[in-house]
Design a binder for these strands. Structure first.
Lengths: 248, 248
DNA sequence: CGTTTCGTTGATAGTACTCAAGTGGTGTGG
DNA sequence: CCACACCACTTGAGTACTATCAACGAAACG
């Protein structure tokens, strides 16, 4: 099965994807951005400084997968938000919760900008400004949807929604289904979906029994039945809209 | 008690507040904004068009209190986000969920701008751009915190957090405690906190028994013990940071 | 003054959490 | 090569919390 995945043609091969090599092609606006930015490569589980709100560094994801962690006093750790290539990360957009850290969930490359440079870039270039605005709006929509998922969906539905999101973002279409490489750890998923790790384990067992999920080992999973997986989440259409790259 | 509230001096009287008269004083940036904007007055429960994502109208709250509602298929209605004076509302920042509507939760005034006018405003004025960016960032932080609240806190803690938020935003400090005028309906609160209305009723009963909440009738409530209320929420400090107006 | 709507409360059921024991894979040392 | 420890994960039993359903009470409205 793994071989099938590796050789499979992906329908989404023309866009950035977590876990792949950093994109080399630069658009015009990317080149302008590059002048202000410092490229930073991070390994898996590496943390990026996010504690001090005053300097307010801006990160722009080039490749890989990152996440914001935080913990409310006396409560288990939470994974607040996931960041994909193109996303903009800054402390001021996150709630001032204790132990808020930006962590690379996979090997990633980000561009680091001082807040002043970011602001200067936006005011200098109207197109750049509009595209950043649009991207921040998408991220806001995703954050709001995440609250909706946690508040309204059952555990099974939450997990199905995450699998759909990951499939759309970093999935590779193969003959046996959609393969996902290097996903989040079980603890990460539990923290993201506001579930207990034990409960999540029960859910994954149910999904395997239903034929929705196959564990391939070493962090590789396979989604053999995309149709039925989408049927298991009441927001499959919304996820499709938010996690498919806009062509414009 | 009502009289006490009406005559009470408020420590926060110098800022916009829901339920009061629209602010009349315009700063320089406000005046620039005003050229592009159409003022719209809405009564309680009035809905504003938000369905079509293409024209993407931008609303800026001048006074009052509004909220975004949505419903996932087969699930109860949700109140995704609350908007206070100064907030920026646009469809593109919200997830594409069915039945998404913008509703005035109190008598309010908003400024309506076409998306093009909003963009033009931002590119024309760097200060305006920076301040809008900052505001959108705050709103993002609040949306993210809301997910955190729903995901990690118990029903009692969620309700305490909402009372603190409302107290900070629209509360009037009186001799008997902090009074709040015209709050959300019971259903609104339940939909916002991702709780069942019946469960919420039990929680309010507990809060009254604990001396944290007094119902005054006709939508007026009183928080007699702010200290203890803050102790009932693990994120009181975070709420304070996000819902106190920045002096800059 | 009836009707309607909203809010409260009790009994019951469902779901997820907690704690604990068990399983499987991996790496290390004998 | 095997024994062992270690870790992540799984699974079972009991518990806590919230949802559901139904009945009741109170306030608003015509």
């Amino acid at each position: 099965m793994t071989i099938i995945l590796q050789n499979a043609m992906s329908e989404t091969a023309n866009r950035d994807r977590a876990g792949e090599l950093p994109v080399a092609r630069l658009t015009g606006t990317d080149a302008a951005l590059r002048e202000y930015a410092t490229p930073v490569r991070v390994r898996r589980r590496q943390r990026l400084a996010l504690d001090q709100p005053t300097p307010d560094t801006v990160y722009i994801v080039r490749s890989g997968l990152l996440g914001i962690e935080a913990a409310i006093a006396g409560k288990p750790r939470q994974l607040l938000e996931l960041f994909y290539p193109g996303d903009i990360i800054r402390r001021a957009n996150m709630p001032p919760l204790p132990h808020a850290t930006l962590t690379a969930l996979n090997v990633s490359e980000v561009w680091r900008l001082p807040a002043r440079g970011f602001e200067a870039l936006l005011t200098a270039n109207a197109d750049q400004n509009a595209s950043m605005q649009r991207r921040l709006g998408e991220q806001h929509a995703r954050a709001s949807l995440h609250a909706s998922i946690i508040g309204a969906l059952s555990g099974d539905e939450r997990f199905a929604s995450l699998l759909i999101e990951l499939g759309l973002r970093i999935g590779l279409r193969g003959a046996a289904g959609i393969g996902i490489d290097n996903p989040l750890s079980r603890t990460d998923i539990a923290d993201y979906l506001a579930l207990n790790p034990d409960t999540l384990s029960r859910i994954t067992s149910r999904f395997r029994a239903r034929g929705l999920l196959i564990h391939l080992g070493s962090g590789q999973i396979l989604l053999p039945n995309w149709e039925e997986l989408c049927a298991a989440s009441p927001i499959a259409a919304t996820l499709q809209a938010l996690h498919t790259p806009t062509l414009g």
